[in-house]
Design a binder for these strands. Structure first.
Lengths: 340, 340
DNA sequence: TTTATTTACGAAACCGGTTTCGTACAAAAA
DNA sequence: TTTTTGTACGAAACCGGTTTCGTAAATAAA
């Protein structure tokens, strides 16, 4: 902290060149006010001294930081990892920096993070909300401060901004319909949140498929996970033990899939003979699980990329206004051996 | 961009309170120069107006940004995803912000990223170098500018700074020894880089185990992946086809494991009967692969956490000096069914 | 009572850029 | 020739904090 290496500043360049600070600044930004000859002298020296302008000085004056804030519930999940890739791809291309924050599914943490964003630290934000998030003053507060925000995957419907999602309803419907076609008469729906719109949609798709096939919807078939792996595990075990032979299971989110394998192993239930399983998942290893997992695979990279593109596009316009629209990028149902 | 909402600045607070800007600033930072009563008035107003100090103004003056830069080769890999988690855990606790950059294994990209860091954008950096990285002027340049940097996992031995690694040599030795004990007389070593120290160490551990068991080291048994999935795939296929019955395979990095499953499937080679496999991997799904994968599991979270802790500790000291030491956190060999 | 400290605060410089505005000189138009 | 316009640049304000330094008033020491 004491003494940072005496960095080369624009002032030094100016002195060295016998020019004023403003001239140097303009030359660097290729202003038409500066002659070609002077510009050349400046960029030559910039190269020679390896001048790196202080981004914070610039941010302070211009009020933008070329930085976007990304808020995720977690990162050790293929979906989010791939989404980051998508986000980074546009950030890199467009010269933006990305600050990453994890809410760990906590509403309070998410609030703190977004509150910090009110400081002007980021030009815009990309968020996939925590499962706990129900209120959303923290989000509207940002929007009111004219800090653009786009949701991806886990959105809040009520907020008027751009949202990038996948066809959750339809995907759950397809998955459920497949299970029914394959003979399941009881289908457990593993849910990780009772409030998230994404969960709601998936559940609705599931319900619709049941209805269309004259199967009664039974609340007891919804298995509500709570992020407490021990309890969740026992609950799942109990439910699977109680389930009828040939039941189906839909894991509405990736992390709920592996526990099913585990429980089945313990209960000596064979997949797919005794239990058929479909999971929303982006695991690369899905094809090599035992047995290979039938998945609803989300276009994670594309979703991240689309969200970032829309955000950046808004940032580049003079008056960015993010339309209140929902971009839907379709998931695909990849049938493997965990279903008959 | 036009008009950001008129944010509340320290100047407004001062005017509102009838105090000077400096007094307000000091009150906020709990300076002893300010009376308790005044401090209270200030923090009350701060609360009331939801004042968020502009981080860039502060950074400009104080020369530090409470931000660390994290440079990774990729993110869609369990190891790095978990490492980010570890890093974030200390960043969150210590009030640091984390900027994420991906080199995508490109040396040029890595150079650009580090060059940007010379601007003072970050207080310190955490890096796991790209597989292409051989030269390292870009890293020493940072160090010379007194920007502390700690390596994790993929380190550069020659550079004198703190490095957090795992016991690569020993782990590879253990894995190889296990395969030999299980009867393998030919063992393929899947390598993803010929220059990275991490690869070198793993290879050495492999060689040592061979030697100890009077097995000859054959260069032809090293399968060099090139990040070109099609070619790599064909190469692996060729090598496996040529390999003797009961051969062993060591995937020196996670992403090389699944291709082995794939190729074995195509060649109708059974794991572990025809091919025994061990992979360096942090995949949660390893236990549920077909067959379950024997892994060298790295303490990814802990490594990220340790690296971040050391970095932050250095940043908090008046004269941060990162010792030229290597912190080794041990991996564990988890034996599953992909080995006999 | 006088002098030395301490307490509590304000004025102003400063961080390193960007941007506005003013101007000298040259070239073009009247 | 005079006026207008354009070109190329510099002075200085500005962004919003932090920090140094100075000082009036209150308190303690002499």
């Amino acid at each position: 902290m004491k003494q940072k290496a005496n960095n080369v500043t624009i002032k030094k360049l100016a002195k060295e060149l016998g020019l004023s600070i403003s001239t140097v600044s303009k030359a660097i930004s290729d202003s038409h006010e500066i002659s070609a000859a002077t510009k050349q002298r400046v960029i030559d020296l910039v190269e020679k001294l390896n001048y790196q302008p202080n981004p914070y000085a610039s941010s302070l004056r211009t009020k933008n930081s070329k930085t976007i804030g990304v808020v995720l519930p977690e990162v050790a999940d293929s979906f989010f990892a791939q989404a980051i890739n998508g986000i980074e791809s546009v950030a890199e291309e467009k010269g933006y920096h990305v600050l990453i924050y994890l809410s760990h599914e906590s509403f309070e943490r998410e609030e703190q993070i977004l509150k910090d964003f009110e400081s002007g630290r980021v030009d815009g934000v990309l968020i996939s909300v925590a499962k706990e998030t129900v209120r959303h003053k923290h989000i509207t507060a940002l929007l009111e401060k004219k800090i653009p925000l786009v949701f991806f995957d886990r959105v809040i419907e009520e907020i008027e901004t751009t949202k990038v999602t996948t066809n959750d309803f339809e995907s759950a419907w397809s998955a459920t319909t497949l299970l029914i076609k394959k003979g399941c008469r009881q289908i457990l729906f593993l849910s990780f949140s009772s409030t998230l719109s994404i969960s709601g949609k998936r559940l609705e798709g599931y319900k619709k498929a049941l209805l269309e096939n004259k199967l009664k919807f039974t609340p007891g078939n919804i298995v509500a996970f709570n992020n407490d792996s021990k309890k969740d595990y026992l609950l799942l075990k109990k439910k699977l033990k109680q389930s009828e032979k040939g039941a189906g299971v839909i894991a509405s989110v990736e992390k709920l899939a592996l526990p099913v394998y585990q429980v089945c192993e313990e209960l000596q239930l064979r997949i797919p003979e005794d239990v058929q399983l479909i999971s929303f998942s982006n695991l690369d290893s899905a094809a090599f699980l035992h047995p290979p997992l039938t998945t609803v695979t989300q276009p994670a990279f594309e979703m991240g990329k689309a969200a970032a593109s829309l955000l950046v596009k808004a940032l580049e316009r003079k008056n960015f206004e993010l339309a209140d629209e929902e971009i839907v990028i379709r998931s695909s149902l990849i049938v493997r051996k965990s279903t008959l």
